[in-house]
Design a protein around this nucleic acid. Structure first.
Lengths: 205, 205
DNA sequence: GTCTATATGCAGATAGAC
DNA sequence: GTCTATCTGCATATAGAC
């Protein structure tokens, strides 16, 4: 029993260390040696718990995603009009990214590596867009929203949210002369900026 | 002279082949062997012309960028009001991406690998934002645009343009059930959709 | 300039003792 | 479960002949 606890704690430690290293270096840049060092063990033990680097990455990546998706599902599937949900969605998404700023890069990598697996995982977790699509089409048909398809609205929303995280190193240089604090402030501002932008684009007032 | 022509043509062939392979596989996935095969030569000759894979990637990447930037510079630095330029900017950017759909991934990689070099290259090519920033601030001050800072507007614009290229494999699955033709149609629609979205967001009419 | 053959080095993965 | 030591394979890069 004590041994089991010990092994379980080692596995947990590995996952935490891997998370940190993947954040610093990305999947390709991460080295099993560095993960082992960070966990205070050696490579062999790493492979004892996780057969391959791919498996380790998958468990870390989908572990993070598992924590994130339920909140989004709840927001997307709520009954409120879309515009009233936008701010909540932006805030939820954005606050999660601020705590996991590497996530867009992880997702981006997985999108290109194995999109089917990622798509299936999202569906398994209940994250699909059929119902939200119907809802938005309805709101447009009733004149509550200016004409736009769900797909375009979704792309606009996601693009505006994630681009400052994906492009941070360059944006911080070109738009804020490298000032990290100003960039953090910029990121915080975007929650309300994006909500306003979308509301203004979709309503005539 | 004929020899010089021959060597020059080999170098050109290598650059073209590298471009193709980088597009298919990305920088990390690309193999020097595959580039050599595609160029009809061997690896040794590859290294004769380009000392390292990094150097080859750089020449390909910044070669592409060199073709793209002047058009953007011209658009950004024109004298027309920003809103009238938006559609031209979106169209120019987007039509370039449609011909080089891998470019966002290249840029994304370079952003994380060596943002200073990338930033400096853009500045050397005349792509800076100080003047456009002033112009937009003026238009906002004069009430021609709803209040927004240049940085937020820029992030919104770039995010909406590039996200469907970056996220294509997943978006195509989740939003269009994997239908590539519909996704291409979706991409073409976005030029006018993005322009309208921005105009509606920034004007009261 | 172009080739064949080989070196170098690294990182993921495994063998086997304890 | 955990370790030391080693293997394997691959990809970049180089040496040297033609």
């Amino acid at each position: 029993m004590i041994k089991a606890m010990g092994s379980d704690s080692t596995k947990t430690k590995i996952l935490q260390s891997a998370h940190q290293v993947f954040i610093r270096k990305g999947m390709d840049g991460a080295r099993m040696q560095e993960i082992a060092d960070e966990a205070g063990i050696n490579k062999a033990l790493l492979h004892y718990y996780f057969h391959s680097k791919d498996q380790l990455f998958n468990e870390v990546f989908y572990g993070i995603l598992s924590q994130m998706i339920p909140g989004l599902v709840a927001l997307f599937s709520g009954e409120k009009p879309f515009l009233e949900k936008v701010e909540a969605i932006v805030t939820e998404y954005d606050s999660y990214l601020s705590r996991n700023p590497i996530l867009p890069q992880f997702i981006f990598r997985e999108i290109n590596r194995d999109p089917e697996q990622l798509s299936k995982f999202m569906s398994d977790q209940g994250l699909d867009f059929d119902r939200i699509q119907e809802r938005i089409d309805n709101e447009v048909a009733q004149g509550h929203l200016r004409p736009i398809t769900f797909q375009h609205l979704f792309a606009n929303l996601i693009g505006m949210i994630v681009i400052p995280y994906i492009g941070r190193p360059l944006f911080q240089l070109k738009l804020f002369k490298g000032d990290a604090e100003k960039y953090d402030q910029f990121l915080r501002e975007r929650r309300v900026v994006i909500s306003n932008f979308i509301r203004q684009a979709l309503t005539k007032d």
